[in-house]
Amino acid sequence: MYYPEPISKLIDSFTKLPGIGPKTAVRLAFFVLNMKEDDVLDFAKALVNAKRELSHCTTCGHITDQDPCAICQDESRNNTVICVVQDPKDVIAMEKMKEFNGRYHVLHGAISPMDGIGPEDINVPSLLTRLKDEEIEELILATNPNIEGEATAMYISRLVKPSGIRITRIAHGLPMGGDLEYADEVTLSKALEGRREL
């Protein structure tokens, strides 16, 4: 009522973003009004392009502007290892580490019968086809350490086990640089379970 229509539409759009409430939305909208027109245009274009030009890689499921994605096209990477993750953001996190040189497979979710998500609703079938075609020796399951992520990892491992491919699960335990005394009991007991010989 107090705002002219264009700005109230803008406020409404901002509130659709995660972590943005009505007050922040108003502040952002008024900030946009004071921005240079070119910057606003670039911003709007970036938004539209991100949505339009990005798709999922048909091989690994990662977000990409070309198909297959840059990682799948990279000849220097190790073809014998695939790391299975739940989310494209997990690929980025792994890549930042610069330690892993294998391929990825993005599931886009985890199996959860409660939410009506079965194995065929996430990228499990494409993973199985991939395992048949390529020279894979190891499958690293890096799904989240919660009930659904854990169940998804166990499910995939059961399906793949008969093929003889080596299946590993990433370790659970203490964060580096943290203090032992601040760890919660569950994490600590997982860390103890996964202890190793020195």
């Binding site: 199996i111 019968p113 079965g118 194995p119 009930i147 854990e150 169940a151 166990m154 499910y155 059961r158 399906l159």
Partner: peptide
């Protein structure tokens, strides 16, 4: 609606 007993085995184990 599904025939997938593998998932049942997984959840049973958990």
């Amino acid at each position: 609606q599904t025939n997938d007993r593998t998932m049942l085995e997984v959840l049973t184990e958990q």
